[in-house]
């Protein structure tokens, strides 16, 4: 009994260490000044919050907000808009595919999904040329459009699954009661779809927030989001590892916090099919 429990505890500890090691390493590095980063010891250092200050405040003589602040606000705005738009367009589309007998619905759905078959690096060069031409290069609008289009297939497919699970007869009954088709959707299905919509939106959000390839090719300085910006810190003569680590920590935080807050809905959304109809 005892040894078994000890063994289990030991294994769990090992798993925790293995999984958290990169995060902890980042956290520790973000608290070190540059000498300590290059020092031979790992834990023997004086913690400092200078790196976190440098994430937000410019180190130049003039002071003011740092470039990373711009990157962060770009990331937040672009992610929020792209997720919102993909959800606003994708949910009604999924409802349409689920409820109506559309000619060639299967082919359309396959086509929609097929837009995701191409790896970003393959399409990014032609996109770059098109964006230059259309004046969308290095604009937030450009990235919002792109990410919305990229999130849509996923949103439509996932939401179609959720709509399929809800009997269409709720909407039928509401129409018999005297409501229009759209009112019937709003009253009959939408309330039951909320967990599914949240779950889908979280996935869109995580994808958009983390996206790197398009962002690095299609933005310069104005609309640059955080992932390419952090990568950009690495290139110079000396890499400010402390700053990189601090920026990464700040970058990871919103997604973690959001995921934690909606975790109940996420689980409810993902196990939706298991509940009785």
């Amino acid at each position: 009994m005892r040894p078994a429990r000890a063994l289990r505890g030991g294994l769990l500890l090992l798993a925790v260490v293995l999984m958290l090691f990169p995060a902890v390493w980042m956290l520790i590095t973000s608290l070190k000044d540059i000498q300590d980063v290059y020092a031979a010891t790992v834990f023997d250092f004086t913690p400092t919050l200078d790196n976190y200050r440098d994430v937000f405040v410019s180190t130049s003589a003039a002071g003011g907000a740092s470039d990373l602040v711009t990157n962060f606000s770009n990331s937040v705005i672009i992610t929020a808009l792209a997720t919102l738009l993909a959800t606003l367009i994708g949910v009604p589309a999924a409802w349409g595919f689920s409820r109506f007998d559309l000619k060639g619905a299967k082919d359309q759905l396959f086509f929609i999904l097929s837009t995701r078959f191409m790896p970003p690096v393959v399409v990014v060069i032609p996109l770059f040329v098109m964006y230059r031409w259309a004046g969308l290069y290095d604009t937030r609008t450009g990235l919002v459009l792109l990410y919305t289009a990229f999130n849509l297939p996923f949103t439509i497919w996932m939401m179609k699954g959720f709509v399929d699970e809800i009997p269409g007869e709720y909407e039928d009954a509401l129409m018999m009661d005297g409501y229009s088709r759209l009112q019937a959707f709003r009253q009959g299905s939408l309330p039951l779809l909320v967990p599914g919509i949240l779950a889908t939106a979280v996935f869109s959000m995580i994808f958009t927030w983390n996206e790197f390839t398009f962002a690095v090719f299609l933005t310069g300085s104005t609309a640059r989001t955080v992932p390419p910006a952090i990568a950009g810190l690495l290139g110079g003569q000396s890499t400010p590892w402390g700053l990189v680590a601090a920026a990464a920590m700040v970058f990871a935080l919103p997604v973690l916090a959001f995921g934690f807050l909606v975790r109940k809905h996420l689980v409810a959304g993902m196990t939706f099919g298991a509940v009785r109809r």
């Binding site: 007869e169 709720y170 009954a173 129409m175 229009s180 039951l192």
Partner: peptide
């Protein structure tokens, strides 16, 4: 004509009671 415009009342075999 839309179902709502036909002025009929229907009892569904599956009841279709609104769950919430």
């Amino acid at each position: 004509a839309a179902p709502s415009a036909r002025d009929l009342a229907m009892v569904f075999q599956s009841y279709a009671l609104y769950p919430k």
